[in-house]
Simulated assay, not measured.
Amino acid sequence: MESSSYKSQSDDLASNGNISNYNSTKIEYVKSRNNEVGPLILYGIFSVFGTTINIFEISSLVVQETLCKRGNILLVNQALANLLISALLFPVMCVAILAGLQKEDFVCQWEWHTALVCFLVTVMNYLCISVENYLRTCRKENHFYDTCCGVQLLLSLILGTWAAAVSCVTTLVILQKGPNLCQKTFENSTMLFVFFVPVFLTCAVFAKAVYEQRSITHSLSQQNSLGSRDETLQRHLLNSNVIAFTLFLCFWLPFLISLTLHSTTAIPSVTTIHQLFTLAQIYSCVCGMMYAFTHDSFRQGYMYLIRYLCCKTRGELSKIMTSENKRGAVRVHIGMETRVGDRSRKFSRISSALSHYETNNTKCEEFL
Protein backbone atom coordinates (compact mmCIF):
# COMPACT_ATOMS: atom_id res chain seq x y z
CA MET A 1 0.00 0.00 0.00
CA GLU A 2 2.78 2.39 0.86
CA SER A 3 4.62 1.65 -2.37
CA SER A 4 1.49 2.26 -4.47
CA SER A 5 0.79 5.57 -2.74
CA TYR A 6 4.40 6.63 -3.30
CA LYS A 7 4.13 5.84 -7.02
CA SER A 8 0.91 7.79 -7.37
CA GLN A 9 2.46 10.83 -5.67
CA SER A 10 5.56 10.64 -7.89
CA ASP A 11 3.35 10.37 -11.01
CA ASP A 12 1.38 13.44 -9.89
CA LEU A 13 4.58 15.41 -9.41
CA ALA A 14 5.87 14.33 -12.83
CA SER A 15 2.63 15.29 -14.53
CA ASN A 16 2.58 18.62 -12.72
CA GLY A 17 6.18 19.21 -13.77
CA ASN A 18 5.35 18.48 -17.41
CA ILE A 19 2.38 20.82 -17.31
CA SER A 20 4.45 23.59 -15.76
CA ASN A 21 7.20 23.12 -18.34
CA TYR A 22 4.63 23.14 -21.13
CA ASN A 23 3.06 26.32 -19.82
CA SER A 24 6.42 28.03 -19.48
CA THR A 25 7.47 27.08 -23.00
CA LYS A 26 4.10 28.18 -24.33
CA ILE A 27 4.44 31.56 -22.62
CA GLU A 28 7.95 32.01 -23.99
CA TYR A 29 6.77 31.10 -27.49
CA VAL A 30 3.89 33.58 -27.33
CA LYS A 31 6.22 36.32 -26.08
CA SER A 32 8.72 35.63 -28.86
CA ARG A 33 5.99 35.70 -31.49
CA ASN A 34 4.61 38.93 -30.06
CA ASN A 35 8.05 40.48 -30.36
CA GLU A 36 8.03 39.61 -34.06
CA VAL A 37 4.77 41.43 -34.78
CA GLY A 38 6.45 44.85 -34.82
CA PRO A 39 9.21 43.96 -37.31
CA LEU A 40 6.68 42.13 -39.49
CA ILE A 41 4.43 45.19 -39.70
CA LEU A 42 7.36 47.53 -40.37
CA TYR A 43 8.81 45.32 -43.10
CA GLY A 44 5.37 45.01 -44.73
CA ILE A 45 4.67 48.76 -44.64
CA PHE A 46 8.08 49.72 -45.99
CA SER A 47 7.88 47.05 -48.68
CA VAL A 48 4.53 48.28 -50.03
CA PHE A 49 5.36 51.97 -49.62
CA GLY A 50 8.88 51.75 -51.05
CA THR A 51 7.88 49.61 -54.02
CA THR A 52 5.03 51.99 -54.91
CA ILE A 53 7.21 55.09 -54.63
CA ASN A 54 10.04 53.62 -56.71
CA ILE A 55 7.61 52.51 -59.43
CA PHE A 56 6.11 56.00 -59.40
CA GLU A 57 9.59 57.49 -59.81
CA ILE A 58 10.35 55.33 -62.84
CA SER A 59 6.92 56.00 -64.34
CA SER A 60 7.31 59.76 -63.86
CA LEU A 61 10.62 59.67 -65.72
CA VAL A 62 8.88 57.90 -68.60
CA VAL A 63 5.61 59.84 -68.66
CA GLN A 64 6.66 63.41 -67.92
CA GLU A 65 7.92 65.18 -71.01
CA THR A 66 10.25 67.47 -69.03
CA LEU A 67 11.96 64.44 -67.46
CA CYS A 68 12.40 62.40 -70.65
CA LYS A 69 16.07 63.28 -70.95
CA ARG A 70 18.94 61.04 -71.89
CA GLY A 71 20.88 61.47 -68.67
CA ASN A 72 17.89 60.70 -66.44
CA ILE A 73 18.30 57.03 -67.21
CA LEU A 74 20.74 57.08 -64.30
CA LEU A 75 17.82 57.97 -62.03
CA VAL A 76 16.02 54.91 -63.35
CA ASN A 77 19.05 52.84 -62.36
CA GLN A 78 18.93 54.38 -58.89
CA ALA A 79 15.24 53.49 -58.54
CA LEU A 80 15.97 49.92 -59.66
CA ALA A 81 18.64 49.60 -56.97
CA ASN A 82 16.12 50.81 -54.40
CA LEU A 83 13.57 48.32 -55.74
CA LEU A 84 16.06 45.56 -55.01
CA ILE A 85 15.49 46.20 -51.31
CA SER A 86 11.86 47.32 -51.16
CA ALA A 87 10.43 44.76 -53.62
CA LEU A 88 12.77 41.81 -53.03
CA LEU A 89 14.52 42.05 -49.67
CA PHE A 90 11.69 43.22 -47.41
CA PRO A 91 9.13 40.65 -48.66
CA VAL A 92 11.64 37.84 -48.07
CA MET A 93 12.11 39.08 -44.51
CA CYS A 94 8.33 39.11 -43.99
CA VAL A 95 8.07 35.51 -45.18
CA ALA A 96 11.01 34.52 -42.96
CA ILE A 97 9.35 36.08 -39.90
CA LEU A 98 6.05 34.33 -40.62
CA ALA A 99 7.87 31.01 -41.02
CA GLY A 100 9.97 31.55 -37.92
CA LEU A 101 13.23 31.51 -39.89
CA GLN A 102 14.38 35.08 -39.30
CA LYS A 103 17.22 33.88 -37.07
CA GLU A 104 18.57 31.42 -39.62
CA ASP A 105 21.98 32.09 -41.10
CA PHE A 106 20.94 31.93 -44.77
CA VAL A 107 18.23 34.57 -44.22
CA CYS A 108 20.73 36.90 -42.58
CA GLN A 109 23.26 36.27 -45.34
CA TRP A 110 20.63 37.09 -47.97
CA GLU A 111 19.75 40.36 -46.24
CA TRP A 112 23.37 41.40 -45.75
CA HIS A 113 24.63 40.69 -49.26
CA THR A 114 21.55 42.09 -51.02
CA ALA A 115 21.85 45.35 -49.09
CA LEU A 116 25.57 45.46 -49.85
CA VAL A 117 24.91 45.12 -53.59
CA CYS A 118 22.36 47.93 -53.41
CA PHE A 119 24.82 50.12 -51.49
CA LEU A 120 27.62 49.61 -54.04
CA VAL A 121 25.35 50.24 -57.02
CA THR A 122 23.96 53.41 -55.42
CA VAL A 123 27.44 54.78 -54.59
CA MET A 124 28.77 54.28 -58.12
CA ASN A 125 25.54 55.49 -59.68
CA TYR A 126 25.62 58.74 -57.68
CA LEU A 127 29.14 59.36 -58.97
CA CYS A 128 27.86 58.98 -62.54
CA ILE A 129 24.87 61.24 -61.78
CA SER A 130 27.12 63.97 -60.38
CA VAL A 131 29.39 63.95 -63.44
CA GLU A 132 26.42 63.91 -65.82
CA ASN A 133 24.69 66.80 -64.02
CA TYR A 134 27.89 68.81 -63.99
CA LEU A 135 28.41 68.35 -67.73
CA ARG A 136 24.77 69.10 -68.53
CA THR A 137 24.53 72.28 -66.45
CA CYS A 138 28.03 73.76 -66.70
CA ARG A 139 29.70 72.26 -69.79
CA LYS A 140 26.90 72.07 -72.31
CA GLU A 141 28.47 74.42 -74.83
CA ASN A 142 30.29 73.20 -77.94
CA HIS A 143 28.41 69.88 -77.80
CA PHE A 144 30.75 68.65 -75.07
CA TYR A 145 27.88 67.02 -73.21
CA ASP A 146 26.63 65.19 -76.30
CA THR A 147 30.02 63.67 -77.00
CA CYS A 148 30.73 62.62 -73.40
CA CYS A 149 27.26 61.41 -72.38
CA GLY A 150 26.04 59.33 -75.26
CA VAL A 151 23.35 56.70 -74.92
CA GLN A 152 25.74 53.80 -75.37
CA LEU A 153 28.11 55.20 -72.76
CA LEU A 154 25.32 55.65 -70.21
CA LEU A 155 24.06 52.13 -70.77
CA SER A 156 27.60 50.81 -70.41
CA LEU A 157 27.99 52.68 -67.12
CA ILE A 158 24.74 51.24 -65.77
CA LEU A 159 25.67 47.68 -66.69
CA GLY A 160 29.19 48.27 -65.35
CA THR A 161 27.91 49.39 -61.93
CA TRP A 162 25.78 46.27 -61.53
CA ALA A 163 28.56 43.98 -62.77
CA ALA A 164 31.11 45.57 -60.42
CA ALA A 165 28.77 45.39 -57.40
CA VAL A 166 27.77 41.77 -57.98
CA SER A 167 31.38 40.74 -58.65
CA CYS A 168 32.62 42.44 -55.49
CA VAL A 169 30.00 40.79 -53.28
CA THR A 170 30.54 37.40 -54.92
CA THR A 171 34.29 37.69 -54.30
CA LEU A 172 33.68 38.51 -50.64
CA VAL A 173 31.39 35.49 -50.29
CA ILE A 174 33.81 33.08 -51.97
CA LEU A 175 36.92 34.29 -50.18
CA GLN A 176 35.02 34.86 -46.90
CA LYS A 177 36.72 38.19 -46.36
CA GLY A 178 35.42 41.57 -45.41
CA PRO A 179 32.93 42.46 -42.68
CA ASN A 180 30.02 40.12 -42.12
CA LEU A 181 27.18 41.22 -39.90
CA CYS A 182 25.72 37.72 -39.67
CA GLN A 183 28.88 35.99 -38.48
CA LYS A 184 29.84 39.02 -36.36
CA THR A 185 33.24 39.31 -37.99
CA PHE A 186 34.29 42.96 -38.02
CA GLU A 187 38.07 42.60 -38.29
CA ASN A 188 38.17 43.57 -41.96
CA SER A 189 35.79 46.51 -41.67
CA THR A 190 38.56 48.96 -42.53
CA MET A 191 38.27 47.86 -46.16
CA LEU A 192 35.01 49.80 -46.27
CA PHE A 193 37.09 52.97 -46.46
CA VAL A 194 37.73 52.04 -50.10
CA PHE A 195 34.08 52.82 -50.79
CA PHE A 196 34.54 56.30 -49.33
CA VAL A 197 36.64 57.25 -52.38
CA PRO A 198 33.65 57.47 -54.79
CA VAL A 199 31.67 59.17 -52.02
CA PHE A 200 34.29 61.92 -51.70
CA LEU A 201 34.51 62.28 -55.49
CA THR A 202 30.73 62.60 -55.70
CA CYS A 203 30.73 65.28 -53.01
CA ALA A 204 33.46 67.20 -54.84
CA VAL A 205 31.71 67.05 -58.23
CA PHE A 206 28.35 68.05 -56.76
CA ALA A 207 29.95 70.96 -54.88
CA LYS A 208 31.67 72.19 -58.04
CA ALA A 209 28.46 71.89 -60.05
CA VAL A 210 26.42 73.81 -57.47
CA TYR A 211 29.07 76.53 -57.20
CA GLU A 212 29.32 77.06 -60.95
CA GLN A 213 25.55 76.90 -61.33
CA ARG A 214 25.15 79.65 -58.74
CA SER A 215 27.65 81.82 -60.56
CA ILE A 216 25.76 81.26 -63.83
CA THR A 217 22.47 82.11 -62.14
CA HIS A 218 23.99 85.25 -60.62
CA SER A 219 25.23 86.42 -64.02
CA LEU A 220 21.80 85.79 -65.54
CA SER A 221 20.10 87.72 -62.74
CA GLN A 222 22.30 90.71 -63.49
CA GLN A 223 21.03 90.56 -67.04
CA ASN A 224 17.42 90.36 -65.77
CA SER A 225 17.10 86.86 -67.19
CA LEU A 226 16.38 83.45 -65.73
CA GLY A 227 17.66 81.39 -68.63
CA SER A 228 15.72 78.97 -70.75
CA ARG A 229 13.10 76.57 -69.47
CA ASP A 230 15.40 73.57 -69.86
CA GLU A 231 18.14 75.29 -67.86
CA THR A 232 15.72 76.08 -65.03
CA LEU A 233 14.46 72.49 -64.90
CA GLN A 234 18.01 71.15 -64.95
CA ARG A 235 19.00 73.47 -62.11
CA HIS A 236 16.10 72.19 -60.01
CA LEU A 237 17.00 68.58 -60.85
CA LEU A 238 20.60 69.21 -59.78
CA ASN A 239 19.39 70.50 -56.42
CA SER A 240 17.13 67.46 -56.00
CA ASN A 241 20.00 65.08 -56.76
CA VAL A 242 22.22 66.86 -54.23
CA ILE A 243 19.52 66.53 -51.56
CA ALA A 244 19.02 62.84 -52.41
CA PHE A 245 22.74 62.17 -52.10
CA THR A 246 22.87 64.01 -48.76
CA LEU A 247 19.96 61.89 -47.56
CA PHE A 248 21.81 58.78 -48.68
CA LEU A 249 24.81 59.79 -46.56
CA CYS A 250 22.59 60.50 -43.56
CA PHE A 251 21.11 56.99 -43.72
CA TRP A 252 24.23 54.96 -44.53
CA LEU A 253 27.12 56.78 -42.85
CA PRO A 254 26.04 56.02 -39.23
CA PHE A 255 25.98 52.31 -40.02
CA LEU A 256 29.36 52.35 -41.79
CA ILE A 257 30.99 54.40 -39.04
CA SER A 258 29.60 52.14 -36.29
CA LEU A 259 30.82 49.09 -38.21
CA THR A 260 34.37 50.42 -38.44
CA LEU A 261 34.39 51.59 -34.81
CA HIS A 262 33.25 48.20 -33.55
CA SER A 263 36.16 46.52 -35.31
CA THR A 264 38.66 48.63 -33.35
CA THR A 265 37.06 49.62 -30.03
CA ALA A 266 33.91 47.44 -29.81
CA ILE A 267 32.04 50.44 -28.43
CA PRO A 268 28.79 50.15 -30.45
CA SER A 269 26.98 46.98 -29.54
CA VAL A 270 25.89 44.46 -32.15
CA THR A 271 22.24 45.33 -31.48
CA THR A 272 22.93 48.98 -32.27
CA ILE A 273 24.70 48.00 -35.49
CA HIS A 274 21.68 45.90 -36.54
CA GLN A 275 19.32 48.81 -35.87
CA LEU A 276 21.48 51.20 -37.90
CA PHE A 277 21.62 48.61 -40.68
CA THR A 278 17.81 48.49 -40.81
CA LEU A 279 17.72 52.30 -40.83
CA ALA A 280 20.13 52.36 -43.77
CA GLN A 281 17.86 50.07 -45.77
CA ILE A 282 14.88 52.36 -45.22
CA TYR A 283 16.59 54.90 -47.49
CA SER A 284 15.40 52.90 -50.49
CA CYS A 285 11.81 53.65 -49.48
CA VAL A 286 12.10 57.42 -48.90
CA CYS A 287 14.41 58.40 -51.76
CA GLY A 288 11.66 58.55 -54.37
CA MET A 289 9.40 60.55 -52.05
CA MET A 290 12.13 63.14 -51.64
CA TYR A 291 12.01 63.90 -55.38
CA ALA A 292 8.27 64.53 -55.09
CA PHE A 293 8.90 67.11 -52.36
CA THR A 294 11.77 68.92 -54.08
CA HIS A 295 10.97 68.79 -57.82
CA ASP A 296 7.81 70.06 -59.49
CA SER A 297 7.91 67.66 -62.45
CA PHE A 298 8.17 64.61 -60.21
CA ARG A 299 5.37 65.90 -58.00
CA GLN A 300 3.16 66.53 -61.01
CA GLY A 301 3.98 63.08 -62.36
CA TYR A 302 3.10 61.43 -59.04
CA MET A 303 -0.23 63.29 -58.93
CA TYR A 304 -1.10 62.27 -62.47
CA LEU A 305 -0.24 58.64 -61.71
CA ILE A 306 -2.36 58.65 -58.57
CA ARG A 307 -5.30 60.11 -60.48
CA TYR A 308 -4.73 57.66 -63.32
CA LEU A 309 -4.70 54.65 -61.00
CA CYS A 310 -7.48 55.75 -58.65
CA CYS A 311 -9.89 58.14 -60.36
CA LYS A 312 -9.37 58.64 -64.06
CA THR A 313 -9.67 56.52 -67.18
CA ARG A 314 -6.98 55.58 -69.66
CA GLY A 315 -7.59 58.52 -71.97
CA GLU A 316 -6.71 61.14 -69.35
CA LEU A 317 -3.04 60.06 -69.26
CA SER A 318 -2.34 61.87 -72.52
CA LYS A 319 -2.80 65.21 -70.72
CA ILE A 320 0.75 64.97 -69.38
CA MET A 321 2.38 65.20 -72.77
CA THR A 322 0.56 68.29 -74.09
CA SER A 323 -0.32 71.73 -72.88
CA GLU A 324 -3.75 72.89 -71.78
CA ASN A 325 -4.66 74.86 -74.91
CA LYS A 326 -3.56 72.13 -77.26
CA ARG A 327 -5.51 69.56 -75.30
CA GLY A 328 -8.76 71.47 -75.66
CA ALA A 329 -8.20 72.11 -79.36
CA VAL A 330 -7.33 68.51 -80.07
CA ARG A 331 -10.28 67.16 -78.11
CA VAL A 332 -12.77 69.49 -79.79
CA HIS A 333 -11.27 68.82 -83.22
CA ILE A 334 -11.37 65.08 -82.76
CA GLY A 335 -14.87 65.19 -81.37
CA MET A 336 -16.21 67.33 -84.23
CA GLU A 337 -14.36 65.23 -86.77
CA THR A 338 -15.82 61.99 -85.49
CA ARG A 339 -19.33 63.44 -85.31
CA VAL A 340 -19.11 64.90 -88.81
CA GLY A 341 -17.72 61.62 -90.06
CA ASP A 342 -20.59 59.68 -88.51
CA ARG A 343 -23.15 62.07 -89.96
CA SER A 344 -21.57 61.88 -93.42
CA ARG A 345 -21.58 58.09 -93.29
CA LYS A 346 -25.23 58.04 -92.22
CA PHE A 347 -26.14 60.50 -94.98
CA SER A 348 -24.31 58.41 -97.58
CA ARG A 349 -26.13 55.28 -96.44
CA ILE A 350 -29.50 57.01 -96.63
CA SER A 351 -28.75 58.47 -100.07
CA SER A 352 -27.57 55.10 -101.37
CA ALA A 353 -30.72 53.44 -100.04
CA LEU A 354 -32.92 56.08 -101.68
CA SER A 355 -31.07 55.78 -104.97
CA HIS A 356 -31.39 52.01 -104.83
CA TYR A 357 -35.09 52.35 -104.11
CA GLU A 358 -35.53 54.80 -107.01
CA THR A 359 -33.69 52.51 -109.43
CA ASN A 360 -35.84 49.59 -108.39
CA ASN A 361 -38.97 51.67 -108.96
CA THR A 362 -37.77 52.74 -112.38
CA LYS A 363 -37.01 49.15 -113.29
CA CYS A 364 -40.44 48.10 -112.13
CA GLU A 365 -42.08 50.86 -114.15
CA GLU A 366 -40.10 49.95 -117.26
CA PHE A 367 -41.00 46.32 -116.77
CA LEU A 368 -44.69 47.18 -116.52
Results as ranks from 00 to 15, higher is better:
M124A: 08
E104G: 06
S215C: 01
G150Y: 05
E57P: 00
Y211V: 15
N325L: 07
L226G: 08
L13H: 08
L120D: 14
L226Y: 07
T278E: 03
N125V: 04
S130Q: 08
T260V: 11
T260D: 02
I58T: 06
S351I: 02
I243K: 04
M290K: 01
Y145P: 11
F193V: 09
T265P: 01
E358G: 04
Y6Q: 09
L368R: 04
R349S: 14
C108Y: 04
F367P: 04
K326R: 00
R349W: 12
A96Y: 01
S156L: 15
E365F: 09
N241H: 01
A87K: 03
A266Q: 09
T338H: 09
A207D: 15
S221N: 10
S263L: 09
C311M: 14
N188D: 11
F119V: 11
R139Q: 05
A165I: 05
L317Q: 04
Y43D: 06
C138W: 08
G315F: 08
C68K: 06
I85F: 10
T161W: 05
L317C: 00
C203E: 10
H274W: 12
F119C: 06
Q64K: 12
I45Y: 09
A164V: 11
V95N: 11
I55P: 05
K103Y: 03
M191F: 14
R229D: 11
R343Y: 08
R214Q: 00
A164Q: 09
E141C: 04
A209K: 05
F298R: 00
K69L: 02
S156H: 01
I320H: 02
V121Y: 08
S323H: 00
S10V: 12
T278H: 02
F144Y: 09
F251W: 11
L279V: 08
N18Q: 13
L220E: 10
T260N: 14
A329V: 09
V131E: 13
C94I: 03
F277G: 11
R70V: 03
S60W: 01
S351A: 07
